[in-house]
Each structure stands twice: as C-alpha cells, then as structure tokens.
Design a binder for these strands. Structure first.
Lengths: 233, 233
DNA sequence: ATCATTAATATGTAGATACATATTATTGTC
DNA sequence: GACAATAATATGTATCTACATATTAATGAT
C-alpha cells in the first residue's frame, strides 16, 4: 500500500491544493502546521515547507511566523508575464523583423517620463523614437527615453542599426521594472507612423527600468491595431 | 575579516546577479558549478541551489542538468501580475464599490468563448453581463460565460446581489488561468453601458480559467476610459 | 488594569548527506 | 565510421538537524 517512490514537494503541493479545491480547507481556514502535515503524509518538514512556499508565491495561501498558514480569503489572479525582445517576438510568430530609427535627440524629459521615474528635477535624457516592423509592416512604435547618466554607453551605439530595445536588454540588466498597460486612441501622428486609422484603439505597454534606484530607461510602446498580449502557461 | 553572519541564499543570489550586472558574466556565459560557487563563497551547495533557482525563475539564467548554468542570451522582461477582485481593487483606491447585473441567461456560447476554451462543439453556458461601479460610475463592464457543467452551483447564486466575479474567485479555485490584453474601440452598446464616448479606446482584460482541463469561466472585462493596469513591485 | 518582559511556537533558513535524473562524453562493438 | 551501451557529471530533490526570527501568549511588576 505504500507508494513506490517517496513524495516530492510538488506532490505535497498538489495534495494541499486539491484539498483547497475540494473545499476541505476553505478561504480563511487555517492549515495544520508543516510538521503535522509532514507526519500525516509521511515526508520531511522541508518537503512541506517547499510546497507551502510555492503555494504562498502563487498567492493561494498566506504564511506568518508563529501565526501558521492560512488559505487566502481574497485570492488574486496572479500570473507571470514574459515580454520578450520585440525582434524575438516577431520571429517567434514566424514574421520577418524590421527596425527603423525615426529620431534621436537629447532633450528635456517629457512629463510622463519624470512621472514614471518620480523625478522632480527637470533633466535631459536621450530620446529615441523608433519603429519595429513585422513583415515590412509597422508592429510596435516605441517612444523611449534613456538616462545618459546611468547608461552613457548608449551614446556610442548606432541606433540606426541596433535598436535601443535590444542593446539595453542585452547590456543593461535592471534590478527593478515597472509595467503599465492601457489603451489610447491613435492621434494623427501616431496613426501615420503605425499606418493605422486615426482614432483606432491601440494597446500601450509602458515599461520603466532601474538599476538600484537609478533610472535606466522608460519606454512607451504603442502596438499596432489588433495587438494582443498573452500570458503563456 | 570574516563576515559576522553566514551567507543567506538572497546574498548569494544578489552576489551572482551583481556579477551579471557588472559584466563579470555576460549573456551566454557559463557560470561555475554550484559546488564551486559554494566553496568560493563559503556556503553550502543547497544555498547556491536556492539562489540559482530564484535567478532561473526570474529568467536571468538557464540551468540544465549536466549542462550547467548559463546566463540567458535573450533576457525577457518577466514580471508578476496580480489581478484582484474588482471590489477589492475599487476599495483599495479609496472608492465606493457598486455592482449591477445587466443580464443573465443560458445561451449558446459566443465564438470567442469557444476559441478561448478550445471547444469544437457548440455548447450552452451561463452568460452574465454585469457592471462594476466605482463611486457610482461605471468602472468595468464584464461579459462572462460560466460552464454550468463545471460550476453548476452558480445557478443557485443570486447574481443580482453577488457578482459572479466574487463568487467564482471564492468558490471555484482554478488550476489554470490564461490572460489576454488588448484595446478596443467602444461600440455604441459598450459605450452606453460604460457611459463613455463612442469610439473611445478601452483596455480589455480577457481571462479564462480551468480546473484540470475543464473550463470554469471566461470573462471579457472592458475597462472604463483611462483605466491602467500596473505591476506592483 | 496597564504595560513591559519573557516564554512558547510556527515558519524561515542554512548545512550536510545521500540519492535521483537528465544530459554529455566515452567506450566498445560491428 | 556508425551506433549502441556505459560512465561521468551537474543539477534536482529529499531528509535530518540545528538554529534564526517573528509573532503570539503568558507572566510579572507597577
């Protein structure tokens, strides 16, 4: 009657999750201590700990020292989102990637940039406007600002050939990244750059990165009409 | 000269990440084996393993048995997204939450529903149209379909009082969740329900959940104009 | 009763050891 | 040389032990 192999932490996790699914434990309920669960299932406490850690990361349970483990009362939908380099994204969909530099200048930062970086002082940054193409057609329009203080090397890069997107992601790993999604109506300028009708609804992905509290770059990526962002799973 | 406390796995992770940041190890480079790193830093292999696991989860390195650990050549922007219950979201912003059931009927599923669930057969599901309000004003319009096979209990719930959103999240934990984000132009019907101008750009959050390959619900949440979705961090 | 101090307790973390597993490298056979 | 069998190896997992840490509960002084 004993199981052939011993329990893995994923088995334990699935077992506990199943108990939550089948309402043995309901939102708000307190789970037994790790040690008791371990004894029940016949495994080590560290195995239960590993399982619980995963459930906690997934937002299914909440753990507190001394307080024990509790099924979350207000479960959230928690997912992982991967945003690849645009070139990779296009290629993965079987398209031919293209890139076009539209403008490049050192300018006083726009209000949305200082808002994203929480900067109070007016500052100059490298402002890059570029277009990513899929199969010769506009795919993503990026309005990017790069801190020349944090990433001075970018000034030596020929952005007509290498996209800032790619260079930064390869050469400037970040320690913090904020994302923001929303929809805009294409104004005349944006519409013409993206070859989209004026007024069409466009998904915007705004991303800001820091390295230890020092801003690296912030980008407003305006996607072509019909663009969808998916989680994988 | 020795450190007062011993190294924690987060220290190890930060140390290795710092080496990647300062280009000691570049994208594509192979890192030493866990054991050597452990010896170097003066900690146990399990500590290095824990750190590496985290870096691997974060998409910074790639690990392969026998193959060793490698800095990812094509780093992705990977973040965690939390989507709370709408009521919680409104309340957290200091607003007063309201809810309105617009319609409720058992109907043949719409094409986008069968697409989301990858169903080939025409099926009937519970179709619920509802409006979430913040401070008396339209906030999110949800067009939801619920499988009465997987969640028959929903038929007994008075959806005029309790939102399906809330009931499901509390009573039907899922094992799989797919998300999809895109922008739409408000058509006349949508615009009037959301009290938004016709043609305004709206962010749509589409979410489908399963319990072990059996569809639970899919929802098209159309947000009010100006809505933004953020990652926390 | 109030508040600070102390003890108890459940989770968190580190270390050591042993074995599992996947993948690469090597060896051997034809 | 081609291909299968085998060995070597780096990560993955499980267990036990010991101690750290945060938080609650109990205790004691005022």
């Amino acid at each position: 009657m004993t199981t052939a192999t011993r329990l893995s932490w994923t088995d334990v996790r699935d077992h506990i999750r199943a108990q939550i699914l089948n309402r043995t434990y309901r939102p708000g309920d307190k789970l037994p201590r790790d040690e008791d669960i371990a004894k029940d299932l016949g495994c080590a406490r560290s195995t239960v700990q590993r399982a619980m850690q995963d459930l906690s990361d997934a937002g299914i349970v909440e753990r507190k020292r001394k307080g024990g483990t509790q099924v979350r009362t207000d479960p959230v939908t928690r997912t992982t989102l991967d945003i690849p380099i645009t070139r990779k994204e296009v290629e993965q969909r079987g398209g031919i990637y293209g890139y076009q530099l539209l403008s490049r200048a050192i300018e006083d930062i726009a209000p949305w940039v200082s808002a994203n970086f929480a900067l109070s002082q007016p500052t100059k940054m490298l402002h890059v406007d570029a277009l990513h193409l899929a199969d010769q057609r506009p795919y993503i329009l990026e309005d990017r600002w790069i801190s020349t203080e944090t990433a001075p090397e970018i000034l030596a890069v020929d952005l007509a050939i290498n996209s800032a997107n790619e260079w930064l992601v390869r050469n400037k790993p970040y320690t913090r990244c904020d994302l923001r999604f929303y929809a805009i109506e294409a104004d005349r300028k944006t519409a013409s750059k993206l070859a989209a009708p004026v007024g069409s609804a466009l998904l915007v992905i705004e991303r800001s990165t820091w390295i230890d509290e020092r801003p690296i770059t912030t980008v407003r990526a305006v996607t072509k009409p019909g663009y969808q962002l998916l989680t994988q799973n």
